[in-house]
Design a protein around this nucleic acid. Structure first.
Length: 477
RNA sequence: GCGCCCUUCGUCUAUCGGUUAGGACGCCAGAUUUUCAAUCUGGAAAGACGGGUUCGACUCCCGUAGGGCGCGCCA
């Protein structure tokens, strides 16, 4: 029996849940679910200056929206500060760490000189072997760990392979600040150990940290976890993700009308693959996901592919699922608050009725809602440029003629109106498209909208005829 | 500057020494269609460069170039 897997996602609440963090969370979650283990959540809020409750809320909200859950209650790192300090002092007592009295100015100067001389800007261990009695008066010391002077530290990584670091390049980093609070390096190690984390899956910007953290694990005689440093996500230009492209919070993707299942599918394929499979159900992802198949090179974020996947998920979602997604989206849409208030039960029912035709052509939920606007649009409709172009005098005369005929229909259904329009087209010798397109424009104000006969049915006889006569009577623009 | 990592179509990727280097997005053309979208068919499109190792290298090794990350009393 091997020990059950425990992974964790450990964001720092200094901002929203960005796309890279979301993927890290997803990979941790998938691996835990795949192995039947647990995924824990730890909020790394030790930076009191920058951590905010709003950010914590945004992260939890983003995870839930993505459908990523965690086991147990979130652990707040700040609340464990005493435990961290305890370990720092234990290290001090065992001789694995020491007090350093160097001032901030002294350290900057040291680093600047090192850079000027072309040496790495590492701490020069000036207090490592110095007698504590030489300590200056009234200077609160920090605690630094003693890194081995020679030899190397090996990081056995599931993704990166075996990576070795010369110990001389790892300096004696600070584990406890002069105010007695722990640094990140100490806190992660202590927390991961105490929380029983067996597998650390995080961005590869932490790879060198893994070497430093190994030093602490070794000094404490603790087992190092299995490491997996996954490549970072870059922007479309290959550089770091910036605000302009991908460094948006997941809530921004929600607001743009992406479905969580689409975003998840997109993210899982960034750096990981299962042969030629592109579309994964949640169950398939869980079944097939494994750490060893994660690639080592950074991936660029590609909106076009995300959009394509989103279109796929919109098309294949049930109407119920879409209405549900739209309901969760609406409160997050600042431009479309009007839509939310317009959604009376009656309009809602029409929306649901039109959905099968609408979802075929929408790539995002925002587009979907937009394409349904004709349902609640007030007469007279404003036409977009293309639609106005199609409504020539000739087209309008056909509209008038058709309106007259449609008015006499005993039944008002998509089938009945279609039959009537087809008959009209045949009698006048026009192609169906030639008469259907003006109809579409007159009814919706757009050229790109759902099947016209569905529109007629959705709108009902009275409203449809009114819209038709609006356009039939007014002269071409 | 030093250390570490990366490099297959524009993008995401398959390949794990022997393939016409495959798939997907995007792009182009055609079919279909309620001249949109969707769908279907076809097409253009890749192993950064230079050395090795090997009967044989996209696959292994070395170097070069380019990119990324790290080097805080931030996380």
């Amino acid at each position: 029996m091997t020990a059950p897997v425990v992974t964790r996602f450990a964001p720092s609440p200094t901002g929203f849940l960005h796309i890279g963090g979301a993927r890290t969370a997803l990979f941790n979650w998938l691996y835990a679910r795949h192995t039947g283990g647990k995924m824990l959540l730890r909020i790394e809020d030790t930076d009191r200056e920058r951590s905010t409750d709003a950010a914590i809320a945004a992260i939890l909200d983003g995870l839930s929206w993505l459908g990523i859950d965690w086991d147990g209650e979130p652990v707040y790192q700040f609340s464990r500060a005493e435990r961290h300090a305890e370990i720092a002092h234990a290290l001090l007592e065992s001789g694995a760490a020491y007090r350093c009295y160097a001032s901030a100015e002294e350290l900057t100067e040291m680093r600047e000189r090192a850079r000027a001389e072309g040496r790495p800007p590492l701490y020069d261990r000036r207090w490592r072997d110095r007698d504590p009695s030489e300590a200056p008066e009234g200077v609160p010391p920090v605690i630094r760990i003693k890194t081995p002077l020679d030899g190397e530290t090996i990081v056995e990584d599931r993704v990166q392979g075996r990576v070795s670091f010369a110990n001389k390049d790892l300096d004696d980093f600070i584990i406890l600040r002069s105010d007695g609070t722990p640094t990140y390096m100490l806190a992660v190690v202590v927390d991961d150990h105490d929380m029983g984390v067996t597998h650390v899956v995080r961005g590869d910007d932490h790879l060198t940290n893994a070497a430093r953290q190994s030093v602490i694990y070794q000094a404490m005689g603790w087992d190092v976890p299995s490491w997996s440093h996954i490549p970072l996500i870059h922007g479309p230009d290959g550089a770091k993700l910036s605000k302009r492209h991908g460094a948006l919070g997941v809530e921004a993707y929600r607001a743009m009308g992406y479905l969580p299942e689409a975003l998840r599918n997109y993210l899982v394929r960034l750096g990981w693959s299962h042969g030629d499979t592109e579309i994964f159900s949640t169950e398939e992802m869980i079944e097939w996901f494994d750490l060893d198949q994660i690639g080592r090179s950074a991936a660029r974020f590609d909106f076009a592919k995300l959009e394509n996947l989103n279109g796929h998920y919109i098309r294949t979602s049930s109407d119920e699922r879409l209405m549900e997604a739209i309901d969760t989206l609406l409160p997050h849409l600042d431009n479309n608050v009007t839509v939310a208030t317009t959604l009376t039960p009656e309009i809602r029912a029409r929306f649901a009725h039109a959905l099968p035709g609408l979802k075929e052509r929408a790539k995002t939920l925002v587009e979907l809602i937009d394409s349904a606007e004709y349902i609640w649009a007030k007469r007279p409709l404003s036409l977009d440029a293309k639609a106005a172009g199609i409504l020539t005098d000739e087209a309008r005369s056909h509209l008038a003629a058709m309106a007259e005929r449609l008015a006499k229909l005993p039944q008002w259904s998509a089938e009945a109106t279609e039959a009537e329009v087809r008959a009209y087209a045949e009698e006048t010798g026009l192609k169906l498209g030639k008469v259907a397109q003006p109809l579409r424009c007159a009814l919706t104000g757009r050229t790109t909208s759902p099947p016209v006969f569905d529109v007629l049915e959705t709108l009902g006889r009275e409203e449809s005829l009114a819209r038709l006569s609006d356009q039939a009577s007014s002269p071409a623009a």
